[in-house]
Design a protein around this nucleic acid. Structure first.
Length: 272
DNA sequence: AACGGAACCTGAAAGC
DNA sequence: TGCTTTCAGGTTCCGT
């Protein structure tokens, strides 16, 4: 589920659970694949015993600064989330790693599909890891209209692909790219460099509004789930192919761009 | 450099 | 009912 709003919500939750607390024991995932190649025991040894001093977000990464110059970087992948179990509460299904804190809480890294990442390293080295160092400016707080215009003008790819490129701007994934383009009335397959100045402004607003809508939707302690059992889809275009456009009632279509499904309105999202 | 496609995993839902 | 196929919110890697 995790794009900027969901990662931000998970980071806030983790901050509330863990900031100022000491990690007294770590149960790592069984293999190295989520750990950036590090052995599970080595991962646990690097993290255990440290106090969590600060939890921040960089694009879709959650960064924990630990005492003594240590660091922990978390990426939620496709299905990751942070949860906490207290007392003798049962751990959530698909818990892959557990961080026991000195207040008795157990913070869980839950990730059914196992595309998530847990990197343990010195904090400075963590920031230098290519996966993290490559992350571009934050789509919500660091990309002005002018900067967005430069980013789009510099690419020959479609606008949708640029929005998904975390090195250009970070935090937007398939869901919010779909939403932002619908809000801006721009066809996802339009070449990025072909947007007019007015379209760039509309897209900038569309990105911010879509992300803020996501933050409002998920601004609770509850684990974010974009569609829970029976809950209505809170989005305008994402996962709505075949349904009427919320603006013009035209049936939304879907196409694959950059390997990702993109729903859009063929009538009001302009290709030119 | 750029682009498409496969790969990495696993679960849920849809299809038959 | 049960087996098979398809699809999924992310990212990297590889061959052309």
């Amino acid at each position: 589920m995790p794009e900027l709003p969901e990662v931000e919500t998970n980071a806030r939750n983790l901050r509330r659970y863990a900031r100022g607390k000491r990690i007294v024991a770590v149960t790592p995932p069984p293999g190295r694949r989520e750990l950036g190649g590090l052995a599970p025991k080595a991962f646990a040894a690097r993290v255990a015993g440290h106090v969590v001093e600060e939890v921040t977000r960089r694009g879709k990464w959650i960064l924990c600064r630990l005492d003594g110059g240590a660091g922990l970087g978390l990426h939620l992948g496709m299905t990751g989330k942070i949860a906490a179990a207290r007392g003798d509460e049962e751990l959530p299904r698909f818990t892959r790693a557990v961080f026991a804190l000195d207040d008795g809480a157990r913070v869980c890294f839950v990730d059914s599909r196992r595309f998530g990442k847990l990197f343990a390293a010195g904090y400075a080295q963590l920031l230098e890891r290519p996966e993290i160092a490559r992350v571009g400016p934050d789509a919500l707080s660091e990309v002005s209209v002018e900067e967005l215009a430069r980013i789009l003008a510099a690419s020959r790819r479609t606008v949708k692909e640029v929005l998904l490129d975390q090195t250009r701007l970070s935090g937007v994934g398939n869901l919010y790219a779909t939403e932002a383009l619908w809000r801006a009335k721009i066809h996802p397959a339009k070449p990025a460099r072909a947007l007019s100045a007015a379209q760039v402004r509309a897209l900038h607003r569309g990105i911010r509004d879509a992300l803020k809508h996501g933050l409002r939707t998920y601004a609770s302690e509850d684990v974010p789930e974009y569609i829970e059992e029976g809950a209505p889809n809170p989005f305008h275009a994402y996962d709505r192919a075949g349904e009427p456009c919320h603006r013009c009632k035209t049936t939304l279509k879907s196409m694959v761009i950059g390997g990702r499904t993109s729903a859009f309105c063929p009538a009001c999202q302009l290709r030119r």
